[in-house]
Computed example of a mutant assay.
Amino acid sequence: MVARPKAADPEVLAHGREGSPDEVIAGSAGWHVSTADALDFAETLPDACAHAVWTDPPYCSGGYTETAKRQARGMLRHQTVKSLGWFINDNMGSAGIVWLLRCVAVQAFRILLEGGSLGVFCDWRMVPLLAPALESSGLRWQGMIIWDKGAPALGSGFRRQHEVVLHFVKGTGVFHDASTGDVLNGSRLHHEARNHQTAKPPEVIERCLGVVAPPGGLVVDFFTGGGSTGVAARRLGMRFLGSEIDRGIAARAREAIKSQSTDARRVRKAHQLGLFDGE
């Protein structure tokens, strides 16, 4: 029998009780982060259980050639690597990341409810490779969301100031907000605030989740990292399931998510239905 997400207890949403994946899916717990490989974890989840899969995978953006990708340290600054160390898989070649994320998209198609969304952070170099690989899973490419970081990176010429979120939907997308555009402004996290080498600001992810999932909905992130997606989901009164292969990073993610509680003001702001009612 296909598992269907149930309405979560208001007390669960308000206080964010940690529980097992089954409890989170059933609505009796608020969140769970497993220390596990992304694909191994995905296979444990039932069909049609999630409103959104929103994830920031390692996307091998550190070089133009395959050799450079394998030798690079992503887009990270030296002091970030020095203080937080390196993390697994971000120096894969293009073939490796395409294979991995195509497998993730196949699992996302399976676990998403009809109308659910997959969002995948990447940079401009990887769009031509990843977009068709993700689309081949059966999901429909809805478009791209641009994250304007507010200031250009180091370099010369037109210095890069943005990242991309590839947005896919299962069938006809179901949306819960019509007031958000496809360009999101949000500054980088300060170095001191990072608990992962490539952490995204939770505020940026909140803007995305408010469009693709309802309060009490279930959000899944197979590459949890420092927990930004989980933090954003908890702030919006959504349930969260995540996986992170690195034990130390997973522990930091749990601490970050545990410290959050639902903010009713954020929930109302995220779900102001401007032009239509997504339900």
Score class of each variant (00 low, 15 high):
Cys122Ser: 08
Arg140His: 09
Gly171His: 01
Leu129Ser: 06
Gly186Phe: 02
Leu112Ala: 05
Thr172Val: 10
Leu101Thr: 03
Val183Leu: 15
Arg140Leu: 12
Asp148Thr: 00
Leu101Asp: 13
Val106Glu: 15
Ile111Glu: 01
Arg102Lys: 12
Gly157Cys: 10
Met144Leu: 14
Leu129Asp: 10
His162Trp: 08
Val169Ala: 12
Phe158Lys: 06
Phe158Glu: 10
Asn185Gly: 12
Cys103Glu: 15
Val106Asn: 11
Lys149His: 06
Leu154Phe: 08
His167Thr: 07
Cys122His: 12
Arg125Tyr: 09
Glu163His: 15
Leu139Tyr: 03
Gly119Arg: 09
Gln142Glu: 07
Pro152Ser: 12
Asp177Cys: 15
His167Gln: 14
Pro128Asp: 10
Phe168Ser: 04
Glu114Asp: 15
Leu112Ile: 05
His176Arg: 07
Gly143Tyr: 00
Met126Trp: 00
Cys103Phe: 04
Ser137Gln: 04
Leu112Val: 01
Asn185Pro: 00
Ala105Pro: 08
Leu100Phe: 14
Lys170Arg: 13
Ala153Ser: 14
Gly157Val: 00
Trp99Leu: 13
Gly186Asp: 09
Gly143Asp: 04
Val164Asp: 11
Ala131Lys: 13
Glu135Ile: 00
Phe109Leu: 15
Ile111Ser: 02
Ile145Lys: 01
Pro128Cys: 08
Phe121Pro: 01
Cys103Gln: 15
Pro132Trp: 14
Leu129Phe: 04
Arg102Phe: 03
Met126Gln: 15
Gly116Pro: 05
Ala131Tyr: 01
Ala108Gln: 04
Arg125Ser: 09
Ala131Gln: 15
Val169Trp: 07
Gly186Leu: 10
Cys122Gln: 05
Leu101Trp: 13
Trp99Asn: 13
Arg125His: 14
Arg140Gly: 02
Phe168Cys: 10
Ala131Ile: 00
Leu130Tyr: 06
Leu184Pro: 14
Glu135Tyr: 03
Trp124Thr: 03
Val165Asn: 06
Val164Phe: 11
Ser137Arg: 04
Ala133His: 05
Arg159Cys: 11
His162Phe: 11
Val120Asn: 06
Val164Lys: 03
Ala108Leu: 05
Ala178Leu: 02
Ala131Asp: 04
Ile146Asn: 02
Gly173Cys: 11
Leu118Phe: 08
Leu184Tyr: 07
Lys149Tyr: 07
Leu101His: 13
Ala153His: 08
Val127Glu: 14
Asp177Ser: 14
Glu114Trp: 03
His176Cys: 01
Gly155Ile: 00
Arg160Cys: 13
Val106His: 12
Ala178Phe: 13
Ile145Arg: 11
Phe109Val: 00
Leu118Pro: 07
Leu118Tyr: 02
Leu184Met: 15
Arg140Phe: 06
Asp123His: 09
Ala153Pro: 02
Ser117Pro: 02
Trp141Tyr: 13
Arg125Glu: 11
Ala133Gln: 02
Lys170Cys: 04
Phe158Val: 14
Leu101Phe: 03
Lys170Asp: 04
Pro128Ala: 08
Met144Glu: 09
Asp177Trp: 01
Trp124Ser: 06
Leu166Val: 02
Ser179His: 14
Ile145Leu: 15
Pro128Ile: 03
Leu118Cys: 06
Asn185Thr: 04
Leu154Pro: 12
Ile145Gln: 12
Thr172Ser: 12
Phe121Asp: 13
Phe121Gly: 04
Ala131Leu: 10
Phe109Ile: 00
Val174Glu: 08
Leu129Asn: 01
Gln142Cys: 05
Ala105His: 12
Ser117Cys: 11
Leu112Met: 08
Phe175Gly: 01
Ser136Val: 00
Arg110Cys: 05
Ser179Gln: 14
Gln142Gly: 07
Gly155Cys: 05
Pro132Asn: 10
